[in-house]
Write a protein that binds this DNA or RNA. Structure first.
Lengths: 270, 270
DNA sequence: GAACAATGTTCTATATTTTGAATGATCGTC
DNA sequence: GACGATCATTCAAAATATAGAACATTGTTC
């Protein structure tokens, strides 16, 4: 139900409270927190429930909700006095999709690879060191497979794609360590082993995760460059461990090739 | 490029200024305006450009942008100092989609009708009397660009669906008139004719627009009820005028039937 | 059906954000 | 390579959004 990234949320209250204090536009921080909470919630929520969950003052919370409702980002049921996400968020998403070249260009690659190897392919975008977001997807259609939805968020350093982000991002080791320690894996690697894997990732140009993030699943990820500097995107292949078998080598080669081609199309120096 | 609804936007400045003043949480109003502007824009924008376009104070604008960037709703390129929508908006949209039963239930109906009649089908949601938003879609031929169109906004009273919203909404005539006068049609009907069409829409249980909103296109729309009160959703068929021909009758019957079935599934009193 | 409890909403003093000018950075031009 | 202009950013005063209590409304229990 909940996002992989929202599962280990011990206390939104503390986080929201701190973020609100540090911000020069606290109302926006509160609004974003409310939108996320409503997104997480299975059912519409009342003012009080929202305020309590996020540690906000009810009256302030009410004003924020009214403003969000006015903007058609939140729906309000006058009968039940409950608030929920409104379809307006779709409109923003559509505009983002429309404007992002990675989506259009990545989709054919994803479709092709998904069909050829019979697995789930993702196009992923990193946003800072916090999260990565699934922005495109393709599935082969046959048999069982793992799947996510476009829009899903994951911690930035998790799994194979996390290794790519870390390997090519040139971040301070201390920062990586701090983030690494907060990750949840099915079979967590030791930090030193992980650092060694980063080195190999840099050599090979792609990263592999064999059952460490999700037991039984193999994830291969190759970075895509949009320009100089850090890669912001990656192509990801996800397969049930056994199903890949000897094809793993071919998959890796095809993935790297597709990622390289995409980098070229996006005008990046691969 | 731009939304149907954003095309006739003479001056965002006035609108934003008024909305900000009336709101008890102006920062949120500003933030929403910025997000919309960034969505509309083809390229990333700088602080100054955004502030000027919306009539905001640059420094305030900067703080809002920073807060939005912190929330991963807006991306910031440190090199060019430009802002754009960020993939975080996708996450909100995914959550909305996940939680809304109309989507899942409507999709099979849309697919079926699109295939049978060879046209484009939409699932639409009204949000107040301001807008309606396309929340689901099916096409007869190759249905890929599908997701890019979902999220489109239209004025609530336009075309066939607008007639449904007006006909079954029980709004004061004065309010309808005020909204009606702001609509842009290819071939605008007279208000009195339109009111007459509303009456017939109530009788028939569906509405038709033959080339009035878009010259050469026939639009048929049937309301879907989620509960008592006003219908919030509608099923919409869009076809090139000539292509429909004698099938129009069958389409109307099928549309009404599907809308009725959906209303039942959603627990509404059809 | 009445009293209670919980929730939503309004109100006002105060702490905060917003404002607009001043500063610093960056770009394009000569 | 230096100048001018544009843009992003900072800062302190002033307008204003926020917090917390009071009030109103809704739903629930006896």
């Amino acid at each position: 139900m909940a996002d992989p990234v929202t599962l280990p949320t011990p206390s939104p209250v503390r986080k929201v409270a701190r973020a609100v204090k540090d911000s020069k536009a606290p109302a926006i921080t509160r609004a974003a927190a409310i939108l996320r909470l409503l997104g997480r919630s299975e059912r519409p929520l009342g003012v009080q429930a929202i305020a309590k969950e996020l540690g906000l003052v009810p009256s302030t919370c009410l004003y924020v909700l009214r403003a969000l409702a006015e903007e058609e980002l939140v729906s309000f049921d006058p009968d039940t006095k409950r608030y929920a996400l409104e379809a307006g968020v779709l409109t923003l998403a559509r505009h983002w999709l429309r404007r992002d070249p990675f989506n259009d260009l990545a989709q054919p690659h994803l479709d092709r690879l998904a069909a050829r190897f019979g697995l789930t392919m993702l196009g992923v975008q990193a946003v800072g060191l916090d999260h990565m977001i699934v922005v495109a997807m393709a599935q082969s259609g046959s048999g069982f497979q793992l799947s996510t939805q476009v829009g899903s968020r994951f911690p930035a350093l998790i799994s194979a794609t996390g290794r790519c982000i870390a390997a090519f991002g040139d971040y301070p080791v201390a920062e990586l360590k701090a983030r690494f320690d907060q990750l949840r894996w099915d079979n967590p690697p030791a930090f030193d082993d992980w650092m060694e894997q980063l080195r190999r990732t840099r050599e090979q140009g792609f990263a592999v995760d064999e059952g460490q993030y999700i037991a039984g699943a193999t994830v291969v990820s190759a970075p895509v460059w949009k320009g100089a500097g850090r890669p912001v995107h990656a192509l990801v292949a996800i397969g049930i461990g056994a199903a890949l078998g000897r094809e793993l080598g071919a998959l890796q080669a095809a993935l790297v090739e597709a990622a390289g081609a995409l980098s070229g199309q996006l005008g990046g120096g691969a």
